[in-house]
Design a protein around this nucleic acid. Structure first.
Lengths: 236, 236
DNA sequence: GGGTAATATTTGTCTAGTTGTATAGTTCAT
DNA sequence: ATGAACTATACAACTAGACAAATATTACCC
């Protein structure tokens, strides 16, 4: 009679629950064990249903935490790739941003050379996450010379904007003087932060921004989720 | 798919932070709570990473005080350098090149739009492989409007150079008018051509070149081996 | 200024719960 | 026979929260 497997009917049921708003985006679903009990099936059967929904981007599971309704249910393939064109010049102006950490530490060799410092000089570090429509698209780390911008971390906390924080420190404008790009596989932590699987292709960018006098003010490293971002380079 | 435990990935990251001097001997690391926040994990996961590093004698924790750098890692593998840095504008002018195929066929939709043609119009297609030191670095496909360059394939065969072939067709110079970049996983054929494993991260580039009048003359797609190439965007 | 108590931080430990993965076995349709 | 669907069990990896113990910071009194 029932040609459809149990797991599929469970997936359909949960999908309609989400569609009808019984579970809202960001909500945690009942645990796999609870779902298994309510539907009277084994936990693995529930897991297969959830795996199916996860592939469609409807839910997102975090080990130890639970299964959550995904932020964007837009998996429908039409126009999926075209929508996420982010200009590299706007990579500092993406819709949403989340501060992960603001610290001060010693500069490594690459940072020192890029910023015109000595290795070991103190630098401010801004670790953050770039979001678009609630989905993480990039993790970045911006490094600034601490000696030149003593109050940067405080203004960064207040303004949440690198541009404004630098303005408050007397930098009216700054421009990109160099960028290097390559493709890599996501590390486990990057994969977690970007909600990808380990080894998924990511775009790795290293760049330096300088003030109008050509003095470097920011050394930035960014990891873009390859499947969600396309960088466009324009000539103007 | 995440084969590496998260705590190990965090331990690796912190170890490299120490190895590269970002945290020096005697420095205090960020608190466990801060590290947990930056990596988006639970404090216990950070603790496991730190426990691993502590066993190796890299760090030393003092209850109530913090975690301090004890020593520098002795056997930390120095990050392998990517060998080829190429400017994006020169990506079509790389040293070694190998012609894989020269064909004429009908334009698909994307090609037609980029070149200002109608879908189905004839185009010349140059499939090639870029080499450096005998190693494949990129596979590319250049598409030219056949109506405008009737003899292009022949001159391409003779000169092996896109620039010279276009010059022979009356294009003294051409410039890049748009480029889009993203990271992807290598397909089976790309992996074979670039001597990578399937799914290895590759840098995918789509660009259009135009003559001085702004008329598009070439629509190019390039797939760079992520582990062998770094693209450089320079203002100088 | 200096010492001391109160408060806040920070690491250490414990318990409990949840998802990820592996192995093995049963049922059933084709 | 074979494979798909499902059950059963066990353990690893990670989260969550709470509290204790050691340390650092601050406030206050003399």
């Amino acid at each position: 009679m029932s040609k459809t497997p149990i797991w599929k009917s469970i997936a359909l049921r949960l999908t309609s629950d989400i569609a009808e708003g019984r579970y809202q985006t960001g909500d945690r679903l009942p645990t796999e064990a609870q779902l298994a009990a309510t539907y009277g099936v084994n936990r693995h059967t529930v897991r297969r249903a959830l795996a199916d929904m996860s592939e469609q981007g409807l839910v997102h599971a975090r080990r130890g935490a639970g299964v959550f309704v995904a932020a964007r249910p837009t998996d429908y393939p039409i126009g999926k790739r075209v929508r996420y064109h982010k200009n590299i010049s706007a990579s500092g102006k993406m819709p949403g941003k989340k501060i992960l950490a603001l610290t001060t530490r010693a500069a490594d060799e690459a940072e020192a050379e890029a910023l015109g410092l000595d290795k070991g000089d103190p630098v401010h570090v801004y670790d953050g996450l770039s979001l678009a429509d609630g989905q993480p698209v990039a993790v970045f780390q911006s490094v600034f010379p601490a000696a030149r911008f003593p109050n940067l971390l405080q203004t960064l906390t207040e303004t949440q904007s690198v541009t404004k924080a630098l303005q408050a420190s007397g930098i009216a404008d700054y421009t990109r003087i160099s960028t290097r790009l390559t493709a890599r596989g996501a590390t486990a932590t990057q994969a977690l932060q970007l909600q990808l699987s380990e080894g998924a292709p990511v775009l790795f960018s290293v760049g330096v921004n300088a003030d109008p006098d050509g003095q470097p003010v920011e050394y930035g490293r960014t990891v873009f989720a390859g499947e969600r971002v396309t960088l466009t380079l324009n000539e103007d």
